[in-house]
Design a protein around this nucleic acid. Structure first.
Lengths: 239, 239
DNA sequence: AGGAATTTGTGCGTATGTATC
DNA sequence: AGATACATACGCACAAATTCC
């Protein structure tokens, strides 16, 4: 017998939230633009202000909107300039350092483990692998491998890539990373990593695994960064 | 005791949330137990139901409570949520884990290096050193040493300390930690650390160095946490 | 099985506080 | 200082899920 999925009505605030999400994704409100004030928007959508607020709060939590008391509700802007490094959290041991990266290799790979991290439908899906070396004040401090869905681009070569991968995403792939999760530990680094850093094979290095979500809340990248703890460290601020 | 600045009034729903958090942490409601119904709880706290609901929703988001429509609000048995302890950022490799800590030793020490981190006037100043072992789901995963200004307390013993050190600060020392900075790398752990974790001397472990600022923006604590990367890892979310 | 009571979820409206412009 | 816009807090009515008889 065919499945008889009961079409359940979603709560109004969810429907409103998805509607607004679609509007923003379609570009009806540009990044950085201010949305109509709550009372107007609620009236135009024929819902109570409280219901609209609940929808907006959810979108803010997803990183799609920014709400500022006394000012307004804004579509989150794509990061520009130095803000492109807002998610870069390595620093020299003495603090700071100017980040730079160069691309070592770009290749098409297949990895069920990574596909799962990217929440892809097919674990056999093809992925772009990008291997890069990272510098702080021109001192090589880390090596990383980044995986993205191959469907973002038919062909990809080291020459194509911007130095800032996040800038590349935004300008070429038409999305940007709005949220990431990092997990840090240490382990024996693969040989190709230690080679690039001029360290003996089998060296234990610190490792950062990252999952990155786009502005439309899709998992878009997974990466693994190995850094030399004698040269740099990961930093975090919480409040 | 050191003086601290007058605190700004927090929103009622935050106050209520923290109150309930403390009640649960203190075990006044056992894991799995159902809380009083919203209307009663709100009445007993002299707040509107909506305000209480906002507090409960936040605690649910933090993984401390579970709310079931038609049934009730329950204290979560094994919270996997990440924000049970706002500034505790270790998790098991599979994710989550209930944090616990016990105190190994409390002593008065002197360390110019740490005094500098604490931005103290006299580098020869005396400090309290608190050494603790940390657990996730009762599995020992990390060992840490925390230093604070000795002037916070004339005498300090392991028995005096709350299990949550931050709660101890707030209730006994009359300040609270509102912001921290973590720096993560890996290094050879001291012998007293590897001993406590049952690892061979000279093992390389992941290390978190933390500086904590109080509500009045003074550096109040410095700590060094060593964790076993085979058992847990540090996590961070950015947006 | 079924219906009533209980409990949380949703939605609405309003008044007041607070940050920003 | 005043206007604007979001944040907080209150209260009420009804819907949906669960529990109990």
């Amino acid at each position: 017998m065919l499945t008889n999925q009961k079409s359940k009505k979603l709560p109004l605030y969810i429907q409103i939230g998805e509607l607004l999400h679609r509007e923003i994704a379609a570009g009806h409100w540009q990044p950085g633009e201010r949305l109509p004030v709550e009372s107007e928007l609620a009236a135009s959508l024929s819902v109570a202000v409280g219901t609209l607020r609940k929808a907006l709060a959810k979108l803010e939590g997803d990183g799609l909107l920014e709400r500022r008391q006394g000012s307004g509700t804004y579509v989150k802007r794509a990061p520009t300039g130095t803000a492109i490094y807002q998610f870069f959290h390595l620093e020299l041991l003495g603090g700071g350092g100017v980040p730079r990266a160069d691309t070592l290799a770009v290749s098409m790979v297949q990895s069920a483990e990574v596909a799962q991290q990217l929440e892809m439908d097919y674990l056999e899906a093809k992925l772009w692998s990008i291997r890069r070396r990272r510098y702080l004040n021109n001192l090589p401090v880390a090596v990383e491998e980044i995986w993205i869905d191959h469907r973002h681009s038919d062909s990809l070569s080291a020459d194509d890539l911007h130095e800032s991968l996040y800038m590349h995403y935004r300008e070429v792939f038409d999305f940007w990373i709005g949220r990431v999760e990092d997990r840090i530990d240490c382990a024996i680094a693969p040989d190709w990593v230690t080679e690039q850093l001029g360290l003996p094979a089998g060296t234990i290095l610190a490792r950062v695994e990252r999952k990155g979500w786009s502005n439309s809340n899709q998992v878009e990248e997974f990466s693994r960064t190995w850094f030399d703890p004698h040269k740099c460290r990961y930093f975090a601020r919480w409040s």
